[in-house]
Amino acid sequence: MAVTDSGGTESARTPAKKPNRLFKNLTAKLASVPMILTAIVVFIGCTGWTIYHSFTKSRLLPAPDKWVGLDQYERLWSTRRWLVSIENLAIYGICSLVLSLVIGFTLAALLDRKIRGESVFRTIFLYPFALSFIVTGLVWQWVLNPDFGIQSVVQRWGWESFTFDPLNNADIVIYGILIAGIWQGSGFIMVIMLAGLRGIDEDIWKATRVEGIPVWKTYIVVIIPMMRPVFVTALVLIAAGIIKVYDLVVAQTSGGPGISSEVPAKYVIEKMFQSQNLGQGFAASTMMLVSVLVVLIPWAYLEFGGKRRD
């Protein structure tokens, strides 16, 4: 252990003091104030505020002192409109999840087959994602218009009995919204899937070709399992989007016919800002948060559980 002895250094000045921890990186801390405020005041504070007030008797004004326990939730779950909203969200959610993943992956896999004009196809599939839900809803409202849209065109071609009027039929209206939602968002899933496919080592393809495994089987047995993280990401993104569905319904059907295409997000906004029933709005939005957590917590657990992030 050859170490020099530490005696006998000449210090002209008194040793500098160790700076206070609080003032270390002070500029960085000051510059992060907007982020810190957003995280604490908005994301934690406002969320907590809403959850708290969902247990109160708030109506026109927030009433923090009028504690009513779970009353608002009981009322919420016995409101037909809320139940319809939940049912719609469930149908829309499941279908949209499955269809987005299937369509997104299929298109990505097709584009990954060394085809001509890949960028043209990609541009076509993705452009709706640049459009707002309002524009999406209004276009599909017109395309699905029973008097002028697809239905009338097919009927005029001679198939008189053809009916396809989702927007006027309370039983299937949610599928009409689904068509528009998929149209808007599936290109995005395709982009994610394509990036995932391109991330797979070319040698994998060479190996399966050498072993004579057919292409379709390679996708199912080798590629899709390898892309598990990409699928999980896509799943979380689609799920987070589904719960927020609001503008699409507002533009395409305004919740109609009747209340048959209502969704939870719309219920919340209307209770808060139109029908002056804040308590219901808070309870309903808290339910939305709960459903997000149901998706998010298992995902976060799978993703980050066990290993600590640096």
Partner: peptide, 11 residues
């Protein structure tokens, strides 16, 4: 502590 050129520069 770290001294450079006879000065305590630790901080």
């Amino acid at each position: 502590e770290i001294h450079i050129g006879g000065r305590n520069v630790t901080w």
